[in-house]
Design a protein around this nucleic acid. Structure first.
Length: 315
DNA sequence: AAGAATGACAACCGCGCGGCA
DNA sequence: TTGCCGCGCGGTTGTCATTCT
């Protein structure tokens, strides 16, 4: 007998009880903790037959001893057929970084731009990976200092990985295209990322810049960066030139200080190295700090997926 | 090899919002 | 108009896996 079946036998409501008492009794008997395979099966089968909707009644009707909230969460984050499992790809990382810079902790909104990804997954990625970097740099994840470092170093390095991955055939698992100039496009044809690539980039549009300057979102500092459109919303601060293509593969920094050129190892108009640039951003003695990592490996260390893909033995 | 530390992710909790009676 | 209810969101916690010492 499965765990769920045992639980159901133990938790049968007494017939004839009042509705209030029934709800209270059910609340007392609601299961918590990890979902079993049986529970997953019941939920999937029920939704496939009856569809989503009123989760509390769904949970009762399906015979699950779970709260409606728990059922909804399990379905949305794990069981939904279109949910994408697996590691966050470099192009997804870039999008998350950019969208978070624009929208902050609006995880569900960010998740809408990453088809198949859930807000929970993106939130976890941010807390475990991005905040880790900020912690190592001894700065706040929301500080302009950290944002500049992300814009000018991390994202260019991610792009460099994508370039290398395209060349090494490492994109087989990831739906990125061989042409790094359209790497953000192909997750799904209808995705807003596709929209970004195809129509959104206007690198030096004064109209967009001025619009960004009057953005109602006062929490996000507006700079002279590239502006793009995601759906019907303007995003400033987007490092867009790599998307625009043409092989420039550069990422514009928020303060205009530097321009990270992918592949050439040139950081900024003054030919700064990554570590030197970090110094300019206010992270002094990066290489000599005793942290035990170079700036490149520091940012690259975020992404365990990519090196693993590259190191996979040929079958 | 074993215990400790850390990371990754699933799941829960509390709050706020909107629909409805 | 107001209170209730369901839902969605963001923050937090718990647990298992992996890495480090």
């Amino acid at each position: 007998m499965s765990e769920m079946e045992m639980g159901m036998m133990q938790g049968i409501l007494m017939p004839g009880s009042s509705l209030g008492a029934t709800v209270a009794a059910e609340d007392d008997n609601l299961r918590k903790g990890p979902w079993t395979a049986d529970e997953d099966l019941v939920l999937v089968n029920y939704i496939s037959l009856h569809g989503e909707g009123r989760w509390n009644s769904l949970a009762r009707a399906a015979g699950l001893k779970r709260s409606g909230k728990s059922c909804r969460l399990r379905w949305l984050n794990y069981l939904r057929p279109d949910v994408r499992r697996g590691n966050i790809t470099p192009q997804e990382q870039i999008l998350i970084l950019q969208l978070h810079a624009r929208w902050g902790n609006r995880w569900s909104k960010i998740a809408q731009q990453l088809p198949g990804r859930t807000d929970n997954e993106i939130k976890n990625y941010w807390r475990t990976r991005v905040q880790k970097h900020a912690k190592k740099l001894k700065c706040d994840v929301n500080s302009q200092q950290f944002k500049d470092a992300v814009q000018c170093l991390w994202i260019p390095l991610l792009l460099e990985k994508i370039h290398a991955g395209a060349g090494a055939g490492a994109c087989e698992q990831s739906p990125c295209a061989a042409d790094p100039c359209v790497i953000l496009s192909p997750l799904t044809p209808e995705s807003s990322m596709h929209h970004v690539v195809d129509a959104g980039v206007d690198r030096h549009s004064p109209d967009h810049s001025s619009t960004a300057g009057t953005s109602s979102d006062s929490s996000t500092p507006v700079s002279n960066l590239t502006d793009i459109w995601v759906g019907d919303e303007l995003i400033s601060n987007f490092t867009g030139s790599y998307i625009a293509g043409g092989g420039s593969n550069s990422a514009h920094c928020g303060d205009g200080l530097a321009e990270a050129q992918i592949g050439g190892g040139v950081y900024g108009e003054t030919l700064l190295s990554p570590s030197e640039y970090l110094n300019q951003l206010g992270f002094p003695d990066f290489e000599q700090s005793g942290w035990g990592f170079s700036s490149e490996s520091f940012w690259a260390a975020d992404d365990s997926w990519f090196p693993q893909q590259q190191q996979l033995p040929q079958q």
